[in-house]
Design a protein around this nucleic acid. Structure first.
Lengths: 228, 228
DNA sequence: CCAAAAAATTGCGTGCACGCAATTTTGCGC
DNA sequence: GCGCAAAATTGCGTGCACGCAATTTTTTGG
C-alpha cells in the first residue's frame, strides 16, 4: 500500500492513524461523559466506544479524565505558542504573551459550553482541566526564546512556568466561582468573563516579562554560571 | 489512659496522635525505601511497619510516594512562610521571598543526603518531590498579604504560584543534572549548588515582586473588578 | 512481491487509590 | 467511673494505571 494520492501526508501516515484513534478516544470519552454523567463512565466503555482495547486506552491517556478534558483543550498549547510567534515584532513581549494566552481561553471555551459546564461539576475533571495549562509551558518557552534569542533558557522556562501558574490561579478561581453559582439557567458559564479574570491574573507578571525582554535586547547573552 | 502528666498538650492530644502516626508512616516509608529500594516497597509494608492497616495509610497520604518524600520535605512549606514573615520589614519583598525559599532548600537538604540521592534515582519520586513545592504556595501567599496588607489576594496568589513555578523549574533542572551524572562516589549531591541555581531561577521574578510591593505601598487597594 | 524489522495493540497480572459502611477509639460532660 | 457523640481505624469491593511479554499490524529493504 504505497502512498497513493495522499500528497497531504506530511506526518508519516502512521502517526495519522495514531492521531485518529486519539481523537476517537477523546470524542467517545466526551460523548459518553455528557450522556451518562462523568462518574458513570468507565474507561472500558470509552475504549469499546472507540473500538480499541482497554489497555490501549492507557497507551494514549494516562488517566480516565484526560481523554474527556483533552476533547476540549486538545491543541490549546500549540495555539498559544503559535499566537505568541504570530504577533508583530513591535508589540511588547508581555502584551504578546498575555494576549495569546487570554485569547485561547476566550474563543475556544464557548465552543463547547455543555462540556465546560460538566467539567465544572466534577472535582476530578476540574483538577484535570486546570492541570492542562502545564501543557503550554513547553511550547511557550520555545516561543519566548524564538522571539528573544538572547534570552536565557532558564529564564524562558521560569517565565513561561510563571505564566502557566498565573493562568492556573485564574482558572481555579473562575471554576470555583462557577461551582458555587451552579445552575442559573440560561447562564452556560456561570461566573464573570474568564478572559478578564485571566488578564487581571497575568498583569502582575508584566514587569518580569518586560524586564527580561529589555535585558535580552540589551544583549545580556546567557549570564548564568549554570546555563548548561 | 487519662492525660497524665502531658502538660505539653497544646494541640488537642487527639491531633498529636495523628501527627505521631503520620510521622511513623513517614519514617517507616523512608527507612524501608532506603533499605530495599524505592520500587521494592509496597504500601502494605509501610503500613505494617507503622502499625496501622493498609487502608489507614491512604487516610494520611494520597499516594505511595508522598510518605517517602514527606519524610524529607515535611514542614518546608510552613518554614518558608515563617521565614518570609520573619525578615525585618526594611528589606525588599523580593529579597525576603527569595532568601526564604532558597534558604529552605539550602539547610534541610543535606540533612538527609542518602534520601535525596535515592529520590534522584526513581522518576516517580523525583516527580513527587518536585510537586511538593506546590505546598508552599498557600502559606507563601498568606505571608505575602501579611507583609503587604494592601496587596490583591489574586496578585498574592499569582506571585506565590510564580515563585513556586520558578522553584519547580530549578528543582527539575537540578534533579535532571543529578540524574545524568549519577554515581560519582563522594558526591552525595551530584550537581552544582542547588541554592545558587534556585536563586538564579527566581531572579527573573524580582521585577514582578518589586512592582507589586511598591504598588501596594502606594495604596492601590484591590483595584480589580473581580476582586470578589 | 516477500521477508525482516519496527511499532502498535492486546491480555494478563499486580499494586494502588478510594468510596462506603461497620467497628473501634477518643474526648467530654455528668 | 459512665455513657454518648464525634472521630479515627479498618475491611471490603471496585475501578484504574501500568509493566511485561505475546501478537498483530505497518514499514522498509531487497
Amino acid at each position: 500500500m504505497c502512498d497513493s494520492g495522499d500528497v497531504t501526508a506530511r506526518p508519516t501516515l502512521r502517526e495519522r492513524k495514531k492521531q485518529a484513534t486519539r481523537e476517537a478516544l477523546q470524542a467517545a470519552a466526551l460523548r459518553l461523559a455528557l450522556e451518562h454523567g462523568p462518574d458513570n463512565v468507565r474507561v472500558d466503555d470509552i475504549a469499546e466506544a472507540a473500538g480499541v482495547s482497554p489497555r490501549t486506552y492507557n497507551n494514549y491517556f494516562p488517566s480516565r479524565e484526560q481523554a474527556i478534558v483533552a476533547a476540549v483543550t486538545a491543541e490549546r498549547a500549540s495555539r498559544v505558542a503559535a499566537a505568541v510567534a504570530g504577533r508583530p515584532a513591535d508589540v511588547g513581549l508581555a502584551d504578546a504573551v498575555i494576549d495569546a494566552v487570554v485569547g485561547q481561553y476566550a474563543d475556544s471555551d464557548d465552543h463547547a459550553p455543555e462540556a465546560l459546564l460538566m467539567i465544572t461539576t466534577s472535582s476530578a475533571l476540574r483538577a484535570c482541566y486546570v492541570d492542562t495549562v502545564t501543557t503550554i509551558e513547553g511550547p511557550l518557552a520555545g516561543a519566548l526564546t524564538e522571539r528573544c534569542p538572547d534570552l536565557d533558557r532558564l529564564t524562558a522556562q521560569v517565565l513561561s512556568a510563571s505564566v502557566g501558574a498565573g493562568a492556573r490561579v485564574a482558572l481555579r478561581q473562575w471554576l470555583e466561582a462557577a461551582r458555587v453559582a451552579p445552575s442559573m439557567p440560561g447562564f452556560v458559564v456561570p461566573s464573570g468573563s474568564l478572559p478578564d479574570l485571566m488578564r487581571t491574573a497575568l498583569t502582575p507578571l508584566v514587569p518580569a516579562l518586560d524586564a527580561a525582554a529589555t535585558r535580552a535586547r540589551r544583549g545580556s547573552p546567557a549570564r548564568t554560571e549554570v546555563d548548561h
